[in-house]
């Protein structure tokens, strides 16, 4: 199982790029796709999912060009779009059956599979009510169930944890690691904590380009030894921010505890263990 994205660009206007000459190779396992709003994450994922076409470039799945043969991808794809809707008058069963039919999934086991999915996503109780009456998190789980209908080998989740409560997030994380055993799973987010515990590899993008791509440890390595904390006065924050890359600030006894990244720390700073969030902020702010 290998997904090969080669030099793809997506133009939205004359010189407005959603994605610019982007290449990445993705193998089995979980890839976390990080990037600030408007980085081009959804643009990339939609093209991989064959619902959008690149202006230039090629996307290969196991050496098959999916721009030419979209159905090769669609047969093994599970896709959760970032901004999807439902037909409010259908109930969860009917909606999933409908999506299954569109995906070309059927057979006598389908009903059972839908029931199992709804059951394990905790939707069995509401499965017979119209989806229009669901809460945001329930709808999101319908979206997740929908992506798993066809036993997919490549699963794309665009901002999957939006609207999920902490318990559901845990459940989702377990699901993703389970899926990654024999498939490619790509998840996008701009929240690092959604990704750092489950992703084997992390790709960071910004302004339509790939900034870095690799296993988590290597990415964190790029800032290790550069992360510090210091207590400063509230009023000094803005001048401090001008000189240093600030990761976070916490209020502490009338003062501010500032976590920052720097090659040459100031006076009484305390060195800290670097984490993915530090690396992410460092990378997106310096690139």
């Amino acid at each position: 199982m290998q997904l090969d994205v080669q030099n793809i660009s997506k133009k939205y206007g004359r010189d407005k790029y959603g994605l610019k000459d982007f290449s990445i190779t993705i193998d089995k396992g979980v890839l976390g796709l990080l990037g600030p709003n408007g980085a081009g994450k959804s643009t990339l994922l939609k093209m991989i999912a064959t619902v959008s076409k690149p202006t230039h470039g090629v996307i290969l799945l196991n050496k098959n060009n999916i721009l030419k043969d979209a159905n090769y991808m669609r047969k093994q794809l599970g896709f959760l779009p970032q901004d999807f809707g439902v037909y409010p008058n259908l109930n969860a069963y009917e909606f999933l059956e409908y999506i299954a039919a569109m995906k070309g999934v059927g057979g006598s086991h389908l009903k059972l599979r839908i029931k199992q999915l709804l059951d394990s996503l905790n939707l069995a109780d509401v499965a017979h009510k119209p989806i229009g009456s669901y809460s945001g998190g329930m709808k999101q789980r319908i979206g997740i169930a929908q992506a798993l209908l066809n036993d997919p080998k490549l699963i794309i989740f665009d901002e999957p944890t939006v609207g999920l409560d902490p318990e559901e997030r845990v459940r989702f994380r377990n699901l993703v690691s389970d899926l990654a055993n024999d498939s490619i799973v790509i998840l996008s987010s701009h929240i690092v904590s959604d990704i750092d515990t489950i992703a084997d590899k992390v790709a960071v993008m910004k302004n339509g380009s790939l900034i870095t791509n690799g296993i988590q440890e290597d990415i964190i390595e790029s800032v290790s030894g550069k992360v510090f904390e210091i207590l400063i006065d509230k009023n000094d924050l803005s001048t401090f921010k001008d000189k240093q890359i600030v990761v976070s600030t916490t209020r502490k006894k009338g003062k501010l505890k500032v976590r920052y990244i720097s090659a040459n720390p100031i006076g009484n700073s305390i060195a800290q263990q670097a984490n993915l969030e530090d690396a992410y902020l460092y990378l997106t702010k310096t690139n």
């Binding site: 999934v105 086991h109 599979r113 036993d151």
Partner: peptide
Amino acid sequence: IENLSKPKIS
């Protein structure tokens, strides 16, 4: 995942 019943192509 392993426990889910396998759907057929249709």
